[in-house]
Computed example of a mutant assay.
Amino acid sequence: MSTPWPPLRAELQGIEPYGAPQLDLPVQLNVNENPYGPSPEVVADIASAVAAAASTLNRYPDREFTELRAGLAAYLNTDGGNAITPEMVWAANGSNEVMLQLLQAFGGPDRTALSFAPTYSMYPEYARDSNTTWVVGHREDDFSLDLDHARDLIRQHRPHVVLLPSPNNPTGTALSPEVVGVLCEELGEGLLVVDEAYGEFRRSGTPSALELLPTHRNLIVSRTMSKAFALAGARLGYLAAAREICDAIRVVRLPYHLSAVTQATALAALRHAPELLGKVDELRLERDACVVWLREQGLQVAESDANFALFGTFEDRHAVWQGLVERGVLIRETGPDGWLRVSIGTADEMTAFKNALTEVMKEINR
């Protein structure tokens, strides 16, 4: 009997790498990017900062990214934070690396991570890659989280880490502060990670879990600069938590994991935060209009506090997805069976999406 080559770990054999389809289409609304790129002024400041960093590339970067942690703490204190200090902030190459580091530090063999489906599809992969046991519960029909079910599952499995996006990906559903507080209490010494990758897009009156950090030492709130800051290409994710948690992550991080170029880019972006975040309100309005329009077409749409909308249901969602592709519009085939997700783009992109979907639905109905 021949041995598979290369000698990949048995549990990884036959698995396809994560990734959304990358197709060169005129309208790309599939990976929840911000459709508005940085202005020439922001680009110039980033270029200047990177040029300055380039002159020192013969040296390793600041291993503790001290200046960046201070900048991120200051920003978070303007968006729901309460006396967050630089020592309470940790950053990495995208929130993906942040999450993986969390499970490397607090998960692992004989430890358990838990979430509730549908949820971000990378979570079980973080658990797999860190040899952490993965347990998944369920959400309600409206994609909300049933608190009794969540408590029962926590009591049954006593997880070391619970991962909960708010707004949830792929549904856009936000958690209530009550749920966050109750689960923190229920977990005891376990950690609750509230993943706010889309937090800046939340609707007025929807609070951030950052407000609860002073109350719960086992709460971690993660963010990213990929979405609202329109910096998906820079790869900068971060979290806020008790200083002891941030210090613990330092044990598993790779040496100098944030390059000087990444740090310079993120700091320049923070200097222009009001401008970079200036399109968030416009995207919220476009999202709400999209939700209304989709419902007017007779479709179900999940309530969304993010920059995307999950809609359905379709007997053959792939046929709908393919029909949109044929018309130059790329969205995401994700979530529960029968559902599709569209990222919110510019007004022109959303018009193109609506026109294409109208044609596809007419064709299918015929």
Rank of each mutant, 00 (worst) to 15 (best):
L72N: 06
L147D: 01
N168L: 02
H160T: 10
T132K: 02
S130Q: 01
V161D: 00
M88N: 14
A53L: 12
V43W: 04
V98P: 02
A52F: 02
R139A: 11
W134L: 03
E67Y: 05
E186N: 03
P109N: 01
Y60L: 15
V135N: 03
I154H: 02
A49S: 15
T173R: 14
L147I: 14
V98T: 11
P167Q: 07
L76G: 04
S176T: 15
S121F: 02
R59Q: 15
A49H: 06
H160M: 02
N96I: 10
F143L: 11
G181Q: 07
D142R: 10
R63F: 04
R111V: 00
S166W: 13
Y126W: 13
L114M: 15
A54N: 15
L175T: 13
A52N: 11
D141A: 13
D62P: 03
L145R: 08
L100S: 09
A53H: 10
A52Y: 05
L72R: 06
D142A: 09
T132S: 03
R59G: 12
G107C: 01
I46E: 15
L102T: 09
F143W: 14
L76C: 07
A53M: 07
V89Q: 04
L103A: 00
I154M: 11
G108L: 09
Y75I: 03
G181K: 05
M88I: 00
R158M: 07
D141M: 08
V98Y: 05
L114T: 10
I46S: 08
V136L: 05
M99D: 10
D110I: 00
P109R: 07
V179C: 09
T56H: 15
E64L: 14
R63L: 08
E140N: 13
P159M: 09
I154N: 06
A174H: 11
V179N: 05
A83S: 11
R59K: 15
L153W: 02
L175P: 08
H157W: 12
D152Y: 00
G181I: 05
A117Q: 09
P124V: 04
V89N: 03
E125D: 00
R158N: 10
S55P: 05
G181H: 02
T133I: 11
S144K: 10
Y60E: 11
L175W: 14
A105H: 04
P165M: 09
E67K: 14
V180K: 07
G108A: 06
E186L: 08
I46F: 09
L102I: 13
A127Y: 03
L153K: 08
L147E: 12
A174N: 11
D148E: 12
A44V: 06
P165Q: 04
D146R: 08
L68F: 13
N58P: 08
P109M: 03
T66C: 07
A174M: 09
A127T: 02
A51N: 15
G107N: 03
V136P: 07
L175G: 12
L183Y: 02
T132E: 00
N169I: 03
D146S: 10
L187M: 06
F106R: 07
P177M: 10
W134D: 01
V136W: 03
H149N: 11
S55K: 15
S95V: 13
D110A: 11
V135Q: 13
G71M: 12
G137D: 07
H160P: 00
I46L: 14
W90S: 12
D45P: 02
G81M: 01
I154G: 07
A54Y: 02
N131E: 10
Y60D: 11
E97G: 00
